[in-house]
Design a binder for these strands. Sequence first.
DNA 1: GCGGCGC
Length: 289
Amino acid sequence: MEGNSGGGGGGGVATGGGGGNDVELLCKTLQVEHKLFYFDLKENPRGRYLKISEKTSATRSTIIVPSSGISWFLDLFNYYVNSEDQELFSKELQLDTKIFYFDIGENRRGRFLKVSEASVSRNRSTIIVPAGSSRDEGWAAFRNILAEINEASRLFILPNQKNSESPEDLVGLSDDVGSGFISGQPATSSELNVDRSVDLPSQDEVGNLGVSKVIRVDQKRFFFDLGSNNRGHFLRISEVAGSDRSSIILPLSGLRQFHEVVGHFVEITKDRIEGMTAANVRTVDPPQR
DNA sequence: GCGGCGC
């Protein structure tokens, strides 16, 4: 085992062999029973990825999740956390050329979720997450970490340095499934151990605080721009479809409420995986044994 | 201080 210590290259999505030069954006650890899970959000010129390792005293195994898959993982873990025992189905998640299999198992130690990654070039690798005995252990704790990482990932910009590539080009490489995420300038990254020596480019737009982002959903694009005027600071959200554009102006004082309301709808629509409309998650037959 | 995974 342990196939990823080679130098450089590493075809796939965003794994760079050992990932030696990859920038570490965020690290978290989670202990579940006697296992230790490491979450490393990393980035290299090919894109961003989440490395999840399971370590026990004797073994370590790792899966690599492309950044575009983090929110899918979050949704899937939410599904397993929220579903009743008898309706825990296996799931498959396809991202780029990888397929992740989610399977439930149970033995005298308890219930567990097996997440394995299959790709053409690499051996299959698997992590196994115990369900945990209480509500905030195991799957739920794992889910919470994914949620933090998913959230934090939005705060990091892509490296817009050195190589002549523009940040937009890099995003295109790393986020080619689901909603793309084009980053403008860095947001405040608070307490995270950001290794970004990127500096804020000078802004030419008066009143622009230097933060703007774009997401693409179906045929629409949504622009998020922080701005300010003599009335104060605001977030402008613009919807652009074809040649039509409309905006809402949200005073920053209302941003948190806005976030909570959106979070509410995210929650009530995602605890059933069937609510996910994208084509790359599908239910497979229940495990039979 | 565990145990599942794969063949």
